[in-house]
Design a protein around this nucleic acid. Structure first.
Lengths: 203, 203
DNA sequence: ACATTTGTTAACCAAATGGTTAAACCAAAT
DNA sequence: ATTTGGTTTAACCATTTGGTTAACAAATGT
């Protein structure tokens, strides 16, 4: 039964580590807290993952592998541009509501460890933007959308979808609503954000 | 000359603390590093700011007092809606290029200390959205813009302006450009972002 | 049955870290 | 010249923290 137990503890650790790292970041996380949350001895953490750094990287890669395909949807999907945008905003919002700490975590740690990006690029899951750029060019040529730089459009799409989650505390304070009302706003964005984007570019 | 010296050291400390806190966050910052950067003894930090927490709060409030008026521009300015949007995106981009770590710092620490928001609301500098909401309603009634929820529009404006800075490492990796090219993209956003927003809402 | 490998723990350790203390320094007032 | 007040430092301290060790337990192979 060794392998069963291994997978149990290993996953237990990873889950606990995920929680703690995503809430407190690399610097703020404590190995002891992770051990407690996983209900194991601290030494066992080092038995499975040799150091805090390695445990963190495991968590981070897991998170990124979850997030990347979501972003990939805007990029490497075959559907028509407007559908794709609608599709993306809808599914991304649903996704993040299930993993609320994730985008902030990824962004944050990417900011404090810019070298991380290099490691990520090597990953198979890392999305490529070629297809999207091509599609935007075609849509411009066929007169479907106004001329716009594909990179800027991509930045816009991602910004409109990710920031409302990362900026939750700031935005909540600013528009002066409680968590419940704000979550409703976010839900509405499933369609609102897509409409906003499409309105801007369609002819 | 005691008072002169005070202001010098105190400011020296605050500047050093700003750099370190903004790059590493509350948890990752080290008092020793701040002292070194300010070229003073560590004990002197505690002489001026009794604890790490208090020093951090001083830095954070400073940062927020810098950021808040920028956001306030979208909200409490008298100019016409489209001009206001153009104005805001232009001046916000210029502002953040001068203070690159600032938005990320504020967002990040707001996320890990949601109670902070309460303290900030009390601040005089905290922007109110009433005027903006009113203005949007009027613009809809007079047929200047399409119907849109003012809160959603505000979220869109802020997202489009702030996220490209916070998400720099992610976006750079995604669209596969170096820092120089990315900074050019950001510069272009001074007008691009405003156009994008206005295109979306104008009739 | 027994040896070997794998999983788990309690106790421990060295380094780092936030914070304190007591003394020294120094400009201005007396 | 001496006192006085705030300013600055070196040395120190208690606690926290990531990480290790050595011993024990539980499987697994032979």
């Amino acid at each position: 039964m060794a392998s069963v137990k291994i997978e149990n503890t290993e996953e237990e650790i990873l889950n606990a580590a995920k929680e703690v790292f995503q809430q407190k970041g690399m610097a703020g996380a404590r190995m002891q807290e992770i051990a407690d949350k996983a209900k194991i001895n601290k030494a066992l953490l080092h038995y499975y993952y040799r150091s805090k750094q390695l445990l963190f990287e495991a968590v981070f890669k897991n998170a990124f592998r979850l997030l990347a395909p979501q972003i990939g949807k805007v990029l490497n999907d075959d559907t028509e541009l407007f559908d794709k945008i609608r599709n993306f905003t809808d599914s991304y919002v649903s996704f993040v509501i299930k993993h609320p700490y994730l985008p902030n975590f990824v962004i944050q740690e990417l900011n404090s460890n810019p070298e991380f990006v290099l490691k990520l690029r090597a990953e198979a899951s890392f999305p490529s933007t070629e297809k999207f750029k091509q599609q935007v060019l075609e849509a411009i040529e066929t007169g479907l959308i106004k001329p716009i730089d594909a990179d800027q459009l991509l930045i816009n799409i991602i910004s409109l979808n990710i920031f409302p989650f990362i900026g939750t505390p700031l935005l909540m304070a600013l528009i002066n609503v409680d968590k419940i009302k704000y979550d409703q706003l976010l839900q509405n964005r499933k369609t609102e954000a897509a409409d906003f984007i499409i309105n801007s570019i369609k002819i």
